[in-house]
Each structure stands twice: as structure tokens, then as C-alpha cells.
Nucleic acid binder design. Structure first.
Length: 206
DNA sequence: CAAACGATCGGCT
DNA sequence: GCCGATCGTTTGC
């Protein structure tokens, strides 16, 4: 299956990019280990106006510099000293827009994901454990093997070990739910913006 | 140079 | 529900 190309990521409408990432397939291929999952939950972040965005007010720091690159690369950072959160940079160069991937449904390399998460083998997991394996941004990033040192890597370069595919899953507007973003209470009125989207009936989304 | 702070998770009550 | 873990980034002195 072909990777999504730069034109998908370069669009300025961050909310459209976020919604359209639902149902796409996030794939990693690190050290010969291939894992993939259907994207089921996302959040949009968008400088300069969004207080919850690390690049709020278009402030550039060494960490957030990659958010200003042309859309189509990864922004991965360490959160709470423990979790590596994976984002897709979008928008044209100079606009710090990104979509946080919050959950996926595993479809390939399930046992590799289990190893990385220190879970038992997939087929021995309880239904609740299968869901916990890749639901939540820290959990899915660990399962797919993401690390902050990979921040800035391309999703569109044919040789890059991380990418997103369209395998033809179609979602109607009525299949998509939206609500406020999680964990951004510090962001004033931006915290109420409904910039979080998920596949309505997926068990792999809150 | 010191200190505060997270776009979270999992275990325990 | 609550709380502790844990550390790079950022900011302020």
C-alpha cells in the first residue's frame, strides 16, 4: 500500500487533516520489526492561536522547531518524563500545526507490540488488556516503538521507517465523534475547543 | 544554574 | 478517584 504523500499533510486545515487521519493505517518498521494499527483517536494542535500547542504564539524552541517544518514529518516528545507522544506535523512550512495520535487498533505485529509494552502474548490477553495495549498516546507510542530521538523523521520519504497508509477504510461524518482535548486544562478557553476526534464506536478510543 | 512543569499510565483504595 | 513515577525542556534568577 502506498504512503500518504506530502499533499495530504501540507494542507492548512488542521482539523480536516486530523479527522481524515481517522481510519488510516499508522505503520512502523524498526529493526526489522513491523507494526501497524488503524488510527482511532486524534487531537489537533495549532499555533499561533492555540494555547495548548507547544508552539503557542509561534515561539520556537529547539524542541518545537520540527513543528514549523513542512507537513509530513513526526514530532515526538517526552511527556511527564515517561511517555513518548507521537504527532504528525501538518501545514505548510512556517506554520506549527500537528495532530497527536491518541489511539490505534492493532492490525499487524501484535506480539511485537505486546513485547514492547511488557504484556503477555496477544492471544492470551483479556479483552480489556487488548484495548489498553494501544489506547492512549503514551501506550500506542510505546507499542509502535516510537522514541523522542526520532522526532523530525519523514513520513513521506520512501525509505523512512514510519509512515501512514490509506487502506480504503471509509468513515462517514456520522462515524466520527468530537470533544474537548484531554489534559490541557491549563490552556484557558482553548481547553474547551472540540479538537479531539475519534471513531465513534471503536473500543480503541475513549 | 536551579526549579517547575507537563498533550500520561498503572496500581491501589 | 487519587497518587506516584520520572526526566527533558523551558524559563527565570
Amino acid at each position: 500500500m502506498p504512503r500518504l504523500t506530502a499533499d495530504f499533510y501540507l494542507r492548512e486545515d488542521t482539523l480536516a487533516v486530523a479527522r481524515e487521519l481517522l481510519g488510516k493505517i499508522l505503520v512502523t518498521h524498526f529493526d526489522g520489526q513491523r507494526t501497524a494499527g488503524v488510527i482511532t483517536e486524534v487531537e489537533a494542535y495549532r499555533a499561533p492561536e492555540d494555547r495548548a500547542c507547544h508552539a503557542y504564539g509561534n515561539r520556537r524552541t529547539p524542541r518545537t522547531e520540527v513543528m514549523f517544518r513542512p507537513g509530513g514529518c513526526a514530532y515526538i516528545y517526552l511527556c511527564y518524563g515517561l511517555h513518548h507522544l507521537f504527532n504528525v506535523v501538518s501545514g505548510p512550512e512556517g506554520m506549527a500545526h500537528a495532530v497527536l495520535i491518541r489511539a490505534v487498533e492493532p492490525i499487524e505485529g501484535r506480539d511485537i507490540m505486546c513485547q514492547r509494552r511488557k504484556y503477555a502474548a496477544w492471544e492470551n490477553l483479556l479483552p480489556k488488556q487488548k484495548i489498553a495495549l494501544t489506547t492512549g498516546p503514551g501506550a500506542l507510542a510505546q507499542a509502535l516503538g516510537f522514541h523522542a530521538r526520532q522526532s523530525g523523521q519523514s513520513l513521506t520519504d520512501p525509505h523512512s521507517p514510519m509512515w501512514i497508509e490509506d487502506q480504503g477504510m471509509h468513515l462517514a461524518e456520522t462515524d466520527i465523534a468530537r470533544g474537548p482535548r484531554i489534559g490541557v486544562d491549563y490552556a484557558g478557553e482553548c481547553a474547551q475547543w472540540e479538537w479531539r476526534f475519534w471513531i465513534k464506536h471503536s473500543p480503541f478510543a475513549r
